[in-house]
Every structure is written in structure tokens, then in C-alpha cells.
């Protein structure tokens, strides 16, 4: 295991609709970062009626130091797989944070500065299984996290899935990763741009 690089509280929120597998995604992502990479990770999620049917979310906090407060306060990365999730959590995003949306479902993002892939469409058409949307998002997120190693992520993912669905999910993960690489460019560049954009928008009023 490589020594984890220093990160101070990187906060991720995975949000969308019940049934998109976001809670599983949170667990898989957290597990890969904690056990695979050796970071400190806390993962929390929505429970109860909130987690069934309607909206759903899972939060992951990553750090190279022990994490005190386990919940998210201001997000570095918001993944929104539904317009409702996008609208309600967008305001929690840091100015230098990134927004990743499913462009199949989120037609009007509340900002011009966002990253998007048609996850739902890709899962249906290219994988042939809409249930794989969460692992596909994991692939894309892996590309966006500068401290995540794609090989470690995939290994951890495969270790955590039952044999029956392992292959199809590995395929979805690879597709998500590949599409992110192709469309978003280098992760370092994305974050540098976000930093700059955040600095410029210091005085902007976000409505």
C-alpha cells in the first residue's frame, strides 16, 4: 500500500434517487479509500423513509488525519443523480468544489460550471443494466479524486461484490472511468480550474 498523500477533510456527497444504489456506492467508495488506500474515512447516509423511494444520499469524508466530526459540512465534491438532489445540495458545495451530474436526468444544473456524463443512458445502452449506474459513477469519481488509485479502487470494488454481479459492475466501473478521462481531462487540471473559478467567484452572488 502506498503511503496516503496528505488530505485535510475532503468531503463528498453522493445524492440522487432511492434505487440508484447510492448507499452501496457510499459504502464501496468509503471501503476502497479506507481499506484499499489507508485513509481515514467516515461514511454516513440517509435512513428510513428518506432512503426508500424518494431521495437518497450518502456522505463520505476522507482525510489523512483522524476525522473528528463524521458528517459533511461543506462539500468538495457533490455527485447529483437527480435534479432535486442537485438543487437542494448545490448550496452546500464549497466555492472551489466540483459538481458532477447525471446529464440524462439533470437537464438544468444550477450553475454553468459542472461536469456531466449521461450515466443512466450509458448504463442502459452500453452496459445493458441500469442497476450499474452506481459503479459507473464510482469509476468517474475515481478519476476525479486526485488521491485515488484506479487499480486499488477496482480491486476493492471487486472484493466487495458478490460473484454474480462482479463482472458487469467491473465493466461499468471501467466505462465510467474511461468516459471521465476522455471528457473531463486530467484531474489535476480540473481541480486547478475549480480553484481558480472559486477564487474569481469570491464576490459573486450565488442565487
Amino acid at each position: 500500500m502506498k503511503a496516503p498523500q496528505p488530505i485535510d477533510r475532503f468531503e463528498i456527497r453522493l445524492s440522487g434517487l432511492g434505487g440508484q444504489g447510492l448507499i452501496t456506492l457510499g459504502r464501496l467508495l468509503g471501503s476502497a479509500l479506507a481499506l484499499g488506500h489507508g485513509y481515514y474515512v467516515t461514511q454516513t447516509q440517509s435512513y428510513g423513509p428518506e432512503a426508500r423511494g424518494g431521495s437518497s444520499r450518502a456522505d463520505v469524508v476522507v482525510s489523512s488525519r483522524p476525522i473528528s466530526y463524521p458528517k459533511t459540512e461543506s462539500l468538495d465534491l457533490l455527485v447529483a443523480l437527480s435534479p432535486e438532489a442537485c438543487n437542494s445540495y448545490y448550496r452546500l458545495l464549497k466555492k472551489t468544489g466540483l459538481l458532477l451530474v447525471d446529464t440524462t436526468l439533470v437537464k438544468h444544473a444550477p450553475t454553468n460550471v459542472y461536469l456531466g456524463l449521461p450515466f443512466t443512458q450509458m448504463a442502459k445502452e452500453q452496459i445493458g443494466n441500469p442497476m450499474t449506474i452506481n459503479t459507473m459513477v464510482m469509476g468517474a469519481v475515481t478519476h476525479l479524486l486526485p488521491f485515488a488509485d484506479a487499480r486499488v479502487m477496482r480491486k476493492s470494488l471487486e472484493a466487495n461484490l458478490p460473484a454474480k454481479i462482479r463482472e458487469v459492475n467491473a465493466k461499468a466501473f471501467a466505462l465510467g472511468l474511461k468516459q471521465a478521462q476522455r471528457h473531463f481531462g486530467d484531474a489535476g487540471g480540473i481541480w486547478a480550474a475549480a480553484e481558480e473559478n472559486g477564487a474569481h467567484s469570491e464576490d459573486d452572488i450565488i442565487v
Binding site: 457510499g26 468509503g30 479506507a34 481499506l35 474515512v41 467516515t42 454516513t44 447516509q45 463524521p70 458528517k71
Partner: peptide, 10 residues
């Protein structure tokens, strides 16, 4: 409490 019980950590 619910937070501790429902937080995942290593």
C-alpha cells in the same frame, strides 16, 4: 446515538 451507530469507519 444514531450518528455513531450509522457511521462507517475503518
Amino acid at each position: 446515538d444514531e450518528v455513531t451507530a450509522h457511521t462507517r469507519e475503518k
